[in-house]
Amino acid sequence: MSPELRHARVLVVDDNAAFLDNLQELLSDAGYEVGVASSCQAARERAKEGFDVSLVDLRLPDGEGTSLAAELKKAMPESEVVLLTGFATLETAMAAVRAGACAYLMKPCAPQELLLTLEQAMRQVRLHGEKRVLARRAQMTEKLAAVGTMTAGLSHEIRNPLNAAALQLSVLERRVRKLPEGQQGPLLEPLGLVRDEIRRLDHILEDFLQFARPREFRPEPVEVEALLRRVGDLLGSQAEARKVKLEVVLPSPISRVLGEEERLRQVLINLTLNALDATPEGGEVRLSASEDSRGIWVTVDDTGPGIPVAVRDRIFEPFFTTKAQGSGLGLPIVHAIVTQHGGTLEVGEAPGGGARFVLWLSKGAPAPAQPVG
């Protein structure tokens, strides 16, 4: 999840216990999520939990801070490292630059100077994230262009034969039902399988069409509480059939957002169905909402296996899927709808270890957006 939707994480590495305690208190009061380590080895272990900025002492009991800084930058390229030292020299400053540190502070440093340096480092972290998002959007734009080109031919060449096949299948089914009952069963079963496959192909084609066709965006006030309860009601029977608990947790009252209710319902149904599919019997899917002065967060949590970190950045790419069947356009369509609403959609880990999708929507009017599928 981006730093804008959570506390920024700071890893402090220093072998002075009193200094660590002071920094942890100062940074926690400033709103940072703070982790501490007193050696290179401990820092390597803590770094596995993730961090945005690391404050690293130049001299540590089991190694040099410059070497550790280079390791941390290699492990977390989008993070930043600030080196701390009580013995500043030209050589150590040059070593800090070579290690990839973004800043170099003398100990003891004034609280305001430290906080200002951290904020500057966080700006760099946010820039790294924005560059990654822009690169991913550029890649998605190329794939979208490919989808549009393919759809122009596919919609006619595939839809017509599908419609003809479905029609002939209906004719055949009516004829079979006129036979004696004892003869119908062995014939109706394969017909049902064929019908399901035609329906699946039709849904895949509809995904292509929906993703490629421009559509005008007409926002209106949407009651979030009613929207979430409606999704819970619609999918309640499917949750029961899967023996999964579906819970909707809402504050009362909750503000409205501007958007298209039908399309937002499509987003939440898709995310909730994915969560139900991923959750084993006896598990739980939780649909919840919260708000602040800026907007509303809708969270979908499940107790399934979760989404591996390695693929989280790719799940909104067109055609990328981890399922055996499907077009790979379900989540990209969801992401496109959310983007058109001026919102964000991010994936992470739920408290129960499963997947967590966090949808953010502004209470105000969405910024003008290009029509998307």
Rank of each mutant, 00 (worst) to 15 (best):
W297E: 08
Q168M: 12
E173W: 00
E247H: 05
R230D: 11
A275Q: 02
V249D: 12
E260F: 07
R215D: 13
L264R: 01
T272D: 02
Q184M: 07
S255M: 11
R263L: 15
D277K: 13
E197S: 15
L234W: 13
R294F: 11
V285M: 03
P253R: 09
N270D: 12
R218P: 04
P251T: 00
K243E: 14
A275C: 01
R199I: 09
R174A: 10
V298C: 08
R177H: 07
A226W: 04
P214V: 05
S237L: 12
L264C: 04
D301T: 07
R294K: 13
E281F: 07
E261W: 07
L268N: 02
G259C: 10
G282D: 04
L227C: 06
E291H: 05
H203L: 10
V249Q: 11
L268C: 02
V171I: 11
I296S: 03
V222G: 00
T299N: 11
R265G: 09
P221K: 06
E261A: 12
P214F: 00
A212W: 02
R229A: 05
E220I: 06
K245A: 10
L169F: 07
E225N: 15
E260P: 07
A278Y: 01
P180N: 02
E197K: 09
A275M: 05
E181V: 11
R286S: 04
V300S: 08
S255V: 15
F208Q: 01
V257M: 06
K243M: 13
L271N: 03
T303Q: 10
D196I: 08
L209I: 14
R218A: 13
G236L: 07
S293R: 14
D301C: 12
Q210T: 13
N270S: 13
R263V: 10
L205W: 02
V267Y: 02
S237V: 11
R263G: 06
E197Y: 05
A166V: 12
N274Q: 06
E173Q: 11
W297V: 02
Q238Y: 06
S252P: 01
Q184A: 07
T279D: 05
L209Y: 10
S288A: 12
L268W: 01
E223H: 11
V222W: 04
R263Q: 13
G282L: 03
A278V: 01
L201M: 15
I296P: 00
R265F: 06
L191M: 13
L276I: 01
E220P: 05
R174F: 08
I254S: 01
R230K: 12
R175H: 15
G232W: 03
E173V: 09
R263M: 15
E291L: 05
V194G: 06
R230L: 10
V298E: 05
V222F: 02
D202P: 07
A275T: 04
Q168T: 10
L258T: 15
V176D: 03
L193F: 08
P253V: 09
G295K: 05
L235F: 00
T303M: 09
R218W: 12
P180F: 00
E173A: 08
S288F: 07
D233P: 02
P186F: 08
E223T: 10
L276K: 00
W297Q: 08
V300D: 09
G185H: 13
I198S: 05
F217K: 05
S237E: 15
A226Q: 15
D301M: 08
L191I: 09
G282M: 06
E220N: 12
